[in-house]
């Protein structure tokens, strides 16, 4: 029952994310909402300049992508480790968690 539920929930999440990409009529340029928000401010306030700059910026889009991938990998790795440990300890019927 547990596996059943996880499988269809994952499939539903995947469908929600994939739908705008594959259904014609939906979608668009797929710019980041954060960038669109930034654009809206620049439009509302002509001549807008942020008063502070990031201390460090990834030098290119590729490096930025790497940093996002790194963030996801660190999180997924740790999450997978904890789930794996739980599953193995519950199989051995140990109370540890």
């Amino acid at each position: 029952m547990a596996i059943h539920r996880s499988v269809w929930l994952l499939a539903a999440a995947l469908a929600i994310v994939a739908a705008p990409l594959v259904i014609p009529g939906l979608g668009g340029e797929f710019k980041g909402a954060d960038d669109l928000g930034t654009d809206a401010i620049a439009q509302a306030v002509p001549g807008f300049k942020p008063w502070f700059q990031p201390l460090w910026k990834p030098p290119s889009d590729e490096v930025e992508t790497m940093m996002f991938a790194l963030q996801a990998a660190l999180g997924a790795g740790l999450l997978g480790y904890v789930i794996g440990r739980r599953q193995s300890s519950s199989q051995k019927n140990v109370a540890g968690r």
């Binding site: 994310v17 705008p20 990409l21 979608g27 668009g28 340029e29 710019k31 980041g32 909402a33």
Partner: peptide, 10 residues
């Protein structure tokens, strides 16, 4: 960052 039906990503 995931695509959404509005044609942007978040």
């Amino acid at each position: 960052k995931m695509p959404s039906v509005t044609g942007s990503c978040s």
